[in-house]
Design a protein around this nucleic acid. Sequence first.
DNA 1: GGCGTAACACTTTTT
DNA 2: GTGTTACGCC
Length: 761
Amino acid sequence: MIDFLAELNEPQHQAVTHENGPLMIIAGAGSGKTRVLTYRIAHLMGSGVDAFNILSLTFTNKAAEEMRHRIEKIIGSEAKNLWMGTFHSVFAKILRFEGFRLGYTSNFTIYDTDDSKSLLKTIVKEFNLDDKTYKPNFILNRISGAKNNLISWQMYNENPVFQAEDISAQMPEIGRIYKTYAQRCFSANAMDFDDLLFNTNVLFRDYLDVLNKYQHKFKHVMVDEFQDTNISQYLITRKLSAVHQNICVVGDDAQSIYAFRGANIQNILNFKKDYPDLKVVKLEQNYRSTKNIVNAANSLIAKNKAQLEKKTFSDNEEGDRIEVIKAHSDNEEGKIIANTIFESKHQGLRNQDFAILYRTNAQSRAFEEALRKLNIKYRIIGGLSFYQRKEIKDLLGYLRYTVNQQDEEAFKRIINLPKRGIGDSTVAKIVVMASENQKSVWEIICNIKQYLEGRAMNSIETFTNLIKSYIIMEEEGKDAHTIAMNIAKTTGILHELYIDKTVEGVARHENVQELLNSIKQFVDNPENEDKTLGSFLQTVSLLTNADQEEDGDPDKVTMMTIHGAKGLEFKHVFVVGLEENLFPSQMMLRSREDLEEERRLFYVAITRAEKKLTLSYAEQRYNWGKLNFCEKSRFIDEIDPAYLKFDDRGSSYTPKGFDFESFGRKERPVVTAPPTRSQAIANLKPVSQAKPAPVHVPTVDFVPSDTKNLKPGDKVEHQKFGFGEVKKLDNLGPTAKAVIHFDSEGEKTLLLSFAKLRIVE
DNA sequence: GGCGTAACACTTTTT
DNA sequence: GTGTTACGCC
């Protein structure tokens, strides 16, 4: 075996060679953590442990793949058999095999955040609640928090503490929403992200034979980024390693930045209590950054109270002081940083050596524009990912529905797409029918003429026949690419985008082609044994932001949020937007008052830098069309000023060495961006449109905007039927309904979401 | 009933 | 600046 142990320092060596019994590695930033984990697995395999007995949980799928390749280089192709991946992807795989015990089929759908929110929205609407108080984001966070602490909807509704909290938040109905949400997901044969972990816990709790099987399979369990695991994840790993007791966790409490999603720093702090004979190894030497950067980071993190004792240090060169730039505006901030990058390239640095890190995705625009003007190539990680684009989700919707006809979110997305004359009211009727007859939407539309009539029915039959033809292909065992190609063609999605010659239409067509390509790659990849549509979908829905495909040119400036930068390193890092209320974030401070997590986030940002670090802030910033005046972030002042160097360059600053001549005196960007939607519209219409004077229209309180106040006995006015009285309200069904007795028309049942009613005082 | 247009609301971080 | 909803027209 290759002697890779020689190059390790003492604590690293201990961590790698510790074989049996629980182990905790506290790995400071830049301490060679990835190397230790890689070698540790290689060492275990070298001493006779089979690859398929090792489970290694990472934070991104990409990290897992990289590690697998590194191990492969040391130990050989046996590394292919390692179980590696994110918590979500590994346990989704296990649930595919074992989920039938909980009532799911093997091709269950994974709801992403958008699906979850859309489902919550419909539930709120059905309950006739005000969607301004009941915000899907908030409810989802609440439900997610409950699930991550293993609180089922039953437990949630039985516990008066939660109800008291919800009442004080003006949302007493959250318990009921949670219940309905969970039941809907289940009947749609779907799990959201949190369910993947929650259900794994249920599975291991209720089916001891299953637990036993995996306990014996995984002789070694390793968890990377342990500081960012939540209770649910921790319990899974604890159960899995209960037999062999070979659990190895790696983490750094100073880099815990996911408490907002349920990560629990107590996991690290309490780990010792759960494993009394725990061996702890601390990796404290930073090999990544200069002394200046490490010291500055230490001086900042010292302000935090909750942390384990450790002393990180660097034996590297002293390095430059940290530069702090004050800019007049957000756009100027972009220009200055783009210019700095442009100049630094003469000092032998390449694009790929730079990273621009910000707190929120929305901040990327000023930097994009500035970099494009100087013809500097960049890539953005995160933000709206490829798989969140409308055209992609549309095609994926068809794929999902082909695999799982219970998937109502997919149904709602594709039923009238491309337009086939099936409108909202028809869809609403189908949903009502389904719930009244205790059947799934699919069963209704397969026999639609038994239930409803009207001109949309023929379109619905065409639709079901289309889907049926895809299902047959799936049952015949055709691979994912063949089916997806067929769907893209026969639905007309591809054609519709093909004939759309607008800029966006062309881009969308390309995107769909790209998706089809990636499915082809998935099918052609010999490492994927299961080439079915179901298998592809499960992989796709668990891709992380860091898993984005590259276009082959690696020499680009990287832009991303600090959260996305975890585990990465760059020669020169810019941390931008250091303004009070932006970083630390106003939201964070208002909702959780957790300044320490924001500080750790800043710590993570600083420690990404190898040689140089630049901090910047702007005095004014445009946010959603409004100009805001900003103050310098308190975090800059928390760094020991001995490590800082202040610089305020004006907006007239132009980069040295920028050759305007070769650009024809004009800034002529070679990297062209597609015009934005508004630009495209502006190109179509002349600007000379006179705006009509605003007309004052008296507002009328028509339902549904006011349904929350509607109760039996109310006198109402209907636009068409005139005056009447509410007899009965049925808001338990999928669509809220009211039985109203009208003076002229007699009794009528109305779908409230479409009725035009007004409450008469 | 369906579809196009205009006003409206929304901006934390991610699996 | 962008995506969603509501209204009014066909």
